[in-house]
Design a protein around this nucleic acid. Structure first.
Lengths: 242, 242
DNA sequence: AGATATCTTTGATGCAAATCAAACTATTGC
DNA sequence: GCAATAGTTTGATTTGCATCAAAGATATCT
């Protein structure tokens, strides 16, 4: 698995960040970009297993992931956890906190991570000044709504194999957009976390991985996955089109 | 079931609309409110069963529901439908279209309805001018994200009875916020649509209604539902707290 | 008002995934 | 380097809901 993005090349400011095209709007002149840098107040390191924010906590900032990997989840009072998403470099988390000024989910780092802290007051102020940033923020929120729509489809209508196929295709597509392989990936999350996201038990996740492996669709060795027959996965996810 | 909101009292402008506190921000002086009226371009009537917008269609506007009731849904290529939400007066739909400039779901009127058409360009322009409107738009989008998180919890972790209990409690709570009874409601959707939203088959929805009825928790007669023991419903939804 | 289509309820049966259980593998800590 | 812990795989059994089926209720049309 080749690392196309080298952490050591990161600059402090958005204007010099090679993830800019993922988490910031494009089409700025240099002066505007310098102003845009103001949106990021600080950086924050989050060690594997640590919380970036948790449900109930005061909301102040959005977070753009620079390096690392997160999961977000919500919980019931009786302790059931639902993973609501997995986020990687260039993605923005914390949008859930805007409505009530308090976070509504937990964000946990699944590996040592590094985030840009964007105080929401800065985001709103600069959004009023820069229509392209305003549009960008709206798109990020809309994208999250659309993503959750498709998860609802997954959870409400799909069988275990379809869910896992969709999950793998989505992960590898996002990794590929970041310069990683489109056929190999290392899962940052446990079978239980995958299961929670996809509405199935860890044993079912494991069995489904084994099934795909037996069918020659993927190679799995624990957290390492290689997609041998991407078309077969697409066909499982969407029998009609492929 | 008493109608606290009388359609005939509606004014054309937001400033005179008695739903304003639901779909528009509060805390304006009269001059600002007049400006805010510009956000609504026109009105549109949608007859029962008709589409307000559909997946793939060009996105231009958000829609605030003035009267009536909608469902939104997404579909797979092989024809499976997932209802992603039910919306009533004062709620805003169309946010899914922002990210790609095309709508990503279908919105169907479940009764004759009336919506305020808010061209998104207007919304963005006025948002830059009025921070309180900007914040309001952000909150609406964030609220939708949080709602979908809780539906993911429902679909991923809850059993049929819990899902239906949560659904009824949510519906009646929103209706009550609009001046309707907190114990009686008339369902605007079929058993199949409820089932689609909650990830279960129509027969299971029907059986679960019957079960609640046998247990004396609700009275059901087709579309009419009266909640006899709200605490029992809350207990089913959340066994620990209640 | 009667016919037709749509929606709902209830019963019988089947099945996909959950649960229970135990062995196996990888990672972490001393 | 070995023990302890955390995570994964696989098998046996159970179960909640889906599916199949048919009757009953309501709404719509002519």
């Amino acid at each position: 698995m080749n690392l196309a993005i080298h952490p050591e090349t990161f600059k402090v400011a958005c204007s010099g960040c090679n993830l800019r095209e993922l988490c910031m709007p494009i089409g700025f002149n240099l002066d505007d970009m310098k102003r845009l840098d103001e949106v990021v107040a600080t950086r924050r390191r989050v060690k594997q297993g640590d919380l970036l924010f948790s449900s109930g906590e005061q909301f102040t900032s959005l977070y753009a992931i620079r390096t690392g990997f997160f999961k977000t989840s919500v919980s019931t009072d009786d302790g059931r956890e639902q993973v609501t998403g997995f986020q990687m470099a260039g993605e923005v988390i914390g949008l859930d906190g805007i409505v009530s000024d308090h976070h509504n989910c937990n964000a946990v780092a699944l590996e040592d991570s590094d985030v840009c802290v964007m105080p929401f007051a800065n985001v709103e102020e600069l959004s009023r000044e820069f229509p392209v940033l305003q549009r960008h923020v709206h798109k990020i929120m809309s994208r999250e709504i659309v993503r959750e729509n498709s998860i609802m489809m997954l959870l409400g209508n799909m069988r275990a194999e379809e869910r896992l196929a969709a999950f793998l295709l989505n992960l590898v597509q996002r990794l590929h957009a970041r310069g990683f392989s489109q056929s190999e990936l290392v899962l940052r999350m446990t079978r239980e976390e995958i299961g929670s996201y996809l509405g199935m038990k860890l044993e079912t996740v494991s069995r489904t991985f084994s099934k795909f492996s037996e069918d020659g669709i993927i190679d799995v060795k624990q957290r390492y996955v290689r997609i041998v027959q991407p078309d077969a996965l697409k066909k499982i996810f969407n029998p009609d089109v492929c």
